[in-house]
Every structure is written in C-alpha cells, then in structure tokens.
Design a protein around this nucleic acid. Structure first.
Ligand code: FES
Ligand code: FES
Lengths: 167, 167
DNA sequence: TTATCTGACACTAAATTAGTATCATTTATT
DNA sequence: AATAAATGATACTAATTTAGTGTCAGATAA
C-alpha cells in the first residue's frame, strides 16, 4: 500500500473519459456518469469542470446538456490527466536544479529517483484514452455477455464502498 | 508535485543508512546522524528502531551506544527500505486478483498500472546501498573539497527548513 | 552515580485527499 | 411563462495519511 500515483481525482477522471469515449459526439450528463460509474456526483462535477477547462471536453448547459469529448481519444494521454489533477510526474521535489542544496550528499539517490521519474512519466505518456477504449471493447467482446450495455457497475448500489478502485 | 513515492520515513532512512555505510562496523548514535543530516531526532529514532527490527542494522544500548549497519550494503536495496516504511510497491490497491470487481470495466487502466508498478519496483530493487555509497564516494572525490568530512549538511542550522528533500 | 544511549509507545500537528453543499445561470420542454 | 434538468463557480467539511514530539524505563561506559 503505497505510491499514491493515482488519486481519486485522476481515477474518476479517466473513468469518466472512458464513458465519454464510448459516446463520442454525444453530450453525457454528470448524473449519468456518476450513476454508471459509482462516482460521487458532486466530486465528479468538479472533475468534469476541470476537464473542460483543460480542453479535453466541452460542455453544454441546461436540459439535455452534459459533457462531450472534445479531443481525439488518441490524443489524450493518461499522463495529461495525471498532470491536470496531480501536477507534473515527479517523485521528488528537490530543488537541485536551482542550487547546490543542503543535502547534496544524498543526491546520489536523487539522481536515481529522477531517472525512474522519467520512466514512469514516459510510460503514462504512452497510454492513450484511445488505447484504453480499444482494450475495453475487446474486453467486452470476449465477455460474451447477454446484457448489451458496454460497461457499468456490476455489484454495489452506487456510492457504497466499491470493493476496489485504482489506488 | 505528485507521486509521493518517497516519504520522509524512507528518505531519512536511506540518508541514515548512507551515514552508517560510511562508518561500517562502528556504532553511530541517533544524535550524531540527526545532527549530521538535519533529521528531526525523535523521528529518526523511530526510523532507526524500525531498521533494527528489520535486521538491516543492530544497536547497542547505553553510553557509546548507537546503531550499526548489519547487512552488507550491496544486499540492501532501496526497495527494501521503501517496503519497510511504505509497504509493497503498489500504485493501485485494486482487489482484482480476488474477484471480478464492480469497476471491472476500468481494469484496462489497472492492467497498465500493474505493468508500471512492476517497472518501478524492479528499478528500486536494483539500487543498492552499496551503489549509492560508491556514487557518494565518487561525488566527494570529484568535489575536491578542503574539508575532510565525507558528507554533511552545508547550509542551514539543522532542523530548519532545508531547501530541498527527496519528495 | 551520572551522562548518554536505545526500546517502547503514546501523542499532536500538518498536509493532502476525498467528499458535500449552495446558488446562480443556461437551456429544452411543456 | 413556468418548470425541470443541466452546468459554472466556489466554499466548505471530513477523512486519511504523513510528519513530528514527548515521555519513561532500562542499558552501558566512564
Ligand atoms: S539536491 Fe537536494 S537532496 Fe540532493
Ligand atoms: S479490478 Fe478493480 S477496477 Fe478493475
């Protein structure tokens, strides 16, 4: 239990984007997404607004309004989402670049951290929403399910402790 | 600013181990390490006890007591230290292995997370204290310093905001 | 006997993350 | 025109995690 690499913000955001990705061109309401994915409504709302501000989605107000995917799924990287909600992918805040620091001796570790930092950043930069959507489609196809809805919560009435999440 | 991959616990622990590594065979007191590295004394004490319990170090009580490196530096991996203080290297807590979960649809993301998880774990598993000590020696050699002490705080009277750290 | 250590453990404080609530405004529908 | 269903904006609270402090008992060297 460690390495809070994906906070709820990011996790929910990606799930929301996956929903939007399966309804490209259409406006989907926060209410719908919230219910389908079991994401606390108000929390999700803030997240969607953030996605709007960052140009990943656009929204329409009023009845029949909602949020719509604006960018091409292949142009949306998981890293982008992480950066929106959690900032740059950094494992260390050390101010090394600025000056020789007090603990410069330990920089030997810092050097390694930066290296791993870059690896992680690169990896998350290679995962696009498009890829996730493809995987999702395959997953649903293989499942040979009798209910047609692409994906939704199975257990649990929404908002009640889902037995797992992405962190 | 994100990815709290190294908490203070881990950071301090590694710095302490570096000190111990430069004094192999000798007992060094928590007080000494605390002052040299600018680590809050009481916090450090708990950390050292934890290292003891995990067999990385041994301690001697009483006057002239302290902590001594027990394992070979090459046998101590940064990952070990991380795991002691922060648990297994996991970017996600998802209970996937146990059962098909409520959010199984998003498992497409989870799959990727697990992959990156493994990369990070492997990387931190390859960094040994021995390697860090070697790097440190080189670093000090190159520095051509006039003061002989291997490494210690430069600025800042201890405990006051060091201008950087490892997270 | 005293000063200097560690062992054990309880406690507080700070920071971050997660979640809730409210109100104004927009828009489709009736 | 009224209403219902949306988002925009923003303030707030709660929960969790991380960081740091304090105390006391026992061990050991001088
Ligand atoms: S540069 Fe800050 S610890 Fe090395
Ligand atoms: S297994 Fe838990 S979200 Fe996929």
């Amino acid at each position: 239990m460690l390495m809070k690499v994906l906070t709820k913000n990011t996790d929910y955001a990606i799930r929301a984007l996956l929903v939007l990705g399966t309804h490209e061109g259409e406006y989907v309401s926060a209410r719908q997404i919230s219910q389908q994915q079991g994401i606390p409504y108000q929390f999700l709302r803030r997240i969607l607004q953030e996605l709007n501000k960052n140009g990943l989605t656009t929204s329409r107000e009023g009845a029949h309004g909602g949020v719509r995917l604006e960018k091409n799924p292949d142009a949306i990287r998981v890293r982008d989402v992480i950066e929106i909600f959690q900032g740059k992918v950094e494992l260390s805040e050390c101010m090394f670049r600025k000056q020789i620091c007090a603990n410069r001796a330990s920089c030997v570790l810092r050097h390694e951290i930066m290296r791993i930092e870059e690896i992680v950043s690169r990896e998350f930069g290679q995962i696009t929403l498009g890829k996730l959507l493809t995987d999702l489609t395959k997953l649903n196809a293989t499942a040979t399910m009798d209910h047609t809805d692409e994906f939704e919560i199975i257990n649990s009435g929404s908002h009640e402790k889902t037995d797992c999440d992405h962190r």
